[in-house]
Design a protein around this nucleic acid. Structure first.
Lengths: 334, 334
DNA sequence: TTTAGCACTCAATCTTACCGAATGCCATCT
DNA sequence: AGATGGCATTCGGTAAGATTGAGTGCTAAA
């Protein structure tokens, strides 16, 4: 006996073969097809299969079909059997062309490398970028465009930049706007992004109201500009059509189910990963439902944080995707 | 005889009925079903149908089927028969909640209103935003982040802002960077965006090379930053899953064909509309193929130009979409 | 010019049959 | 006690009719 508890060495080997064969072919795996590898008769394998099925690690699609891994089976495989796959030369090579291109900015490096992963694997990639954790306000600048529009530009110490288009009433003079900006600059530079809203409310507001006559309208404009700062983070989904390459999605209902989820920006935003490490969510463990597998990890480079994720069928090559994401995560530092 | 040439009043009426009935039901239209409306027998209608088919305006799906409009038939309908549909109260109401929200910036107004159109019609919307036509450079600013990264911020007179992350060799001093920025600011403020690249090359480069010792590496950094300025414009596709609501896309191959096109950013960028007006492209007239209809128009507000488009089945409600886009175009000025 | 009538075509649906791939189980072998 | 061979059984998949119904084209008459 080995491992979690009740599963023998041979059963584990059998589970491994079933999972990997199913991942490769998308078909059910028969007892006969494994005779040669396990050096025993199909009847023997059927007996073992019955035990694995008893344990909920594999399933039949109908009463006399071969077996496929269950969700629990994948989980067991991922946790106890799978060994981190080594990347092939081709995979590494394609990614390196991105990492070695010095003229790309960080966000483009991530987008492009995930595009490549999507292309290499025929899965779908998601990049959630742009949040700025632990960034501090470095500078606020306001550029007047015409009498009722100004552009506020906010720059953080880690190099994150956002701009907001602010509409103001025409009764407010340019001088008053400038005075407000000066006050903001003087008072909140160095404040962490997360705290700006409350600082504005409790520290800046009282002061502005003293110095600026039209303070109310101006304050409101700036408050809304700051409060959704980097809230609607960038979402990029690449290779959504790849799900059609997977035979299990040869069904308009299933395609619809997942496509509707890709369209739901709220849901996509929610896959944002907070933990460290690379996390695998099989089937119903993720928000896309039982038919898909999701592998995701966060990244943080120069204070820019985000999440990258790969979505494929439950039957996806977990080991390979894991290795690819690991490689990307290690190489975007530069 | 009326219209283009060979088509009678009654034939035109018949074509109108066939198109509109098909748009409503997605089914073939039989002669019998139109008897009541046209006040004649099915045989008479069949005779007229034979003529319309002769002219290529309608088709059969098989030898004894009812008729559907051909591509040419849709074209004729759009050009000669369709009357601009009046928007329903619900349509207007939903859009107005966006237009009346003063705190949204322009780009968000467009995105959100197209989201609503997509939702109202069950078609797919595309927004290509962010290009800045006729904008002139108003200010360049550089903020050093650390010894080999600076952020360049570019602002145009119309209020368009972009920033680029520039990596520089550590051998370049902050002073040299600042000197370069000052030169750029002095020399190219007021230049139209489109001309910046060439101006950099032929006017700035010689001067920089005189004043800045490490000019080559700096020049290259700025050149790449400017040259893809607003090139990779924002693309937003909303409601891609809506195509599955259309019965003619109840087929994984067709879904795949169009989804692959949605994934192709190059193709999507190419739908950018240059002409004025709202343009309808039926079937093979657009880049998405014979199964879809495309309605698109450009917009220009405060020097920010872009394109909005709606994609549906060939059998789409052209009149309604036309009215919706018209309404949006008229109302994003504010 | 319109219409009624009729033969004909075809999609769609259902039924039936059959093959082959697997399985479960049982009796037997080592 | 574990492994195996044999056998009945199940079920998906494919193919071949059979049936139905909607709709057309054509012709002859109104």
């Amino acid at each position: 006996m080995v491992g979690d508890g009740m599963i023998t060495k041979r059963q584990e080997e059998l589970l491994k073969l079933i999972v990997e064969e199913h991942i490769k072919t998308a078909k059910t795996v028969s007892s006969k097809s494994l005779c040669d590898i396990l050096n025993c008769s199909s009847a023997t394998i059927r007996n073992e299969m019955a035990i694995l099925e008893e344990l909920g690690l594999i399933e039949k699609t109908h009463i006399s079909s071969g077996r496929i891994p269950s969700e629990k089976g994948y989980r067991y495989y991922v946790d106890n059997i799978m060994e981190p796959k080594k990347l092939t030369g081709e995979d590494v090579l394609k990614l390196q062309t991105i990492f070695h291109n010095r003229s790309l900015m960080l966000s483009d490096v991530i987008l492009k490398s995930m595009e490549i992963v999507s292309e290499l694997t025929s899965y779908t990639s998601i990049v959630l970028g742009g949040a700025s954790k632990n960034n501090r306000l470095s500078k606020v600048e306001a550029i007047p465009i015409n009498e009722n529009r100004i552009i506020a530009i906010v720059i953080t110490d880690k190099g994150h930049v956002e701009h907001k288009n602010i509409r103001i009433e025409s009764s407010v003079s340019i001088e008053e706007v400038q005075k407000t900006i000066d006050l903001i600059n003087k008072l909140i530079v160095g404040t962490p992004i997360e705290e700006i809203s409350s600082k504005l409310e409790f520290e800046i507001k009282p002061i502005i109201s003293k110095y600026v006559t039209q303070y109310k309208t101006l304050y409101n404009a700036f408050y809304t500009a700051f409060s959704d700062f980097s809230k609607d983070s960038n979402i990029r989904i690449t290779g959504a059509s790849n799900i059609l390459k997977q035979p299990e999605f040869n069904d308009t209902n299933k395609i619809g189910d997942i496509l509707r989820k890709f369209d739901d920006r709220e849901l996509i935003r929610n896959i944002r990963e907070e933990n460290n490490g690379i996390n695998i969510h099989v089937g119903s463990e993720n928000e896309f439902g039982e038919d898909v597998g999701l592998i995701k990890t966060n990244y943080e480079v120069n204070g820019e944080v985000g999440t990258i994720a790969i979505i494929g069928p439950t039957r996806m090559e977990y080991g390979r995707v894991l290795a690819l994401l690991e490689y990307i995560k290690e190489n975007i530092g530069g």
